[in-house]
């Protein structure tokens, strides 16, 4: 049984068709690389899976259980063990690290007052033991805007890690990061896999995707156009496939333009 399965997913934004019948699944303890050009529909697919918005049509199953799209939400996805690290990072940069870590899932007493000491301690522990920012020398009270790009990504990833997700979705987590910081993110994905978790990894950088994924799914203009297991393709072959796809698309667009 797959961990999550999406069947015949369609999504329209007004008259714009973002997804036209996508089937997508992730197995237990599997890292799936989701690739495709800008506008292929990767982020849209992932936002549907994370509960940001519902599909126009289609079915979603999590751990074999059918999801009611009208009731599905980010909160519900969290409850089912699906955590997403969004391209836009989903951080409030003026707020402290601990507030960001617990955003939407604040530890509170019965009246809704925050357990600040607990939240700070937990954040401090996570930063010291898992994220290791500057050797653990960053305070949980520091605002996120004082952190580097890689560290900010670390807060967002640390959030997924802290809440023990079964499936972590990473949308372009290595964009605008230095080589060293990219390695940290890749190591985090390997760590997830080692812990028996699953991951969907979206990136434009094929080398990064290839380094950690078990399977690759290629999206193009709202459809799945290719699916390969790691043992079926080499990295240069995968690159070749994407370049051909890109060229055929450019040609098609050229023909459409000439009308």
């Amino acid at each position: 049984m797959p961990l999550v399965e999406m069947k015949d997913i369609h999504k329209y934004f007004g008259t714009v068709v973002a997804l036209r019948g996508v089937d997508f699944k992730v197995d237990e303890n599997e890292v799936v690389g989701l690739i495709g050009d800008n506008g292929a529909g990767k982020s849209t697919l992932i936002k549907i899976l994370s509960g940001v918005f519902p599909p126009t049509k289609g079915e979603i199953y999590v751990k074999g259980q059918k999801i009611d799209p009208r009731r599905y939400s980010v909160r519900e996805a969290h409850r089912l063990g699906i955590e997403t690290v969004f391209q836009e990072q989903a951080l409030g940069i003026k707020q402290s690290i601990w507030r960001n870590l617990f955003l939407g899932r604040e530890p509170t007493d019965r009246l809704g007052f925050l357990k600040v000491v607990e939240a700070r301690d937990e954040t401090h522990k996570l930063m010291r033991e898992v994220l290791r920012f500057r050797g653990g020398g960053v305070s949980p009270d520091a605002s996120v805007r004082t952190l580097s790009g890689g560290e900010r990504q670390g807060v967002a990833i640390g959030r997924a890690m802290y809440f023990e997700a079964d499936l972590v979705i990473l949308d372009e987590p290595t964009r605008a990061l230095s080589v060293q910081e990219v390695q940290k993110v890749l190591n985090f994905i390997r760590e997830l896999k080692r812990r028996g978790k699953s991951c969907v990894y979206i990136s434009h950088t094929i080398a990064n995707v290839y380094a950690v994924s078990d399977r690759f799914v290629i999206l193009d203009r709202g459809k799945v156009v290719g699916e390969y297991k790691r043992e079926e393709v080499s990295e240069p072959e995968l690159n070749e496939i994407l370049i051909e796809l890109h060229e055929s698309r450019a040609q098609e667009e050229l023909q459409t333009d000439s009308f």
Binding site: V74, E88, G92, I93, K94, R99, E106, L114
Partner: peptide, 28 residues
């Protein structure tokens, strides 16, 4: 002061003003 800085509601107010998209993505 307690509501804004020590209550869940205040936390959501601060994040709504800081990064509305982030707050929404985290289910607020």
């Amino acid at each position: 002061w307690f509501i804004l800085f020590r209550h869940r509601f205040g936390n959501h107010v601060l994040f709504s003003g800081d990064n509305e998209g982030a707050a929404q993505m985290m289910g607020i």
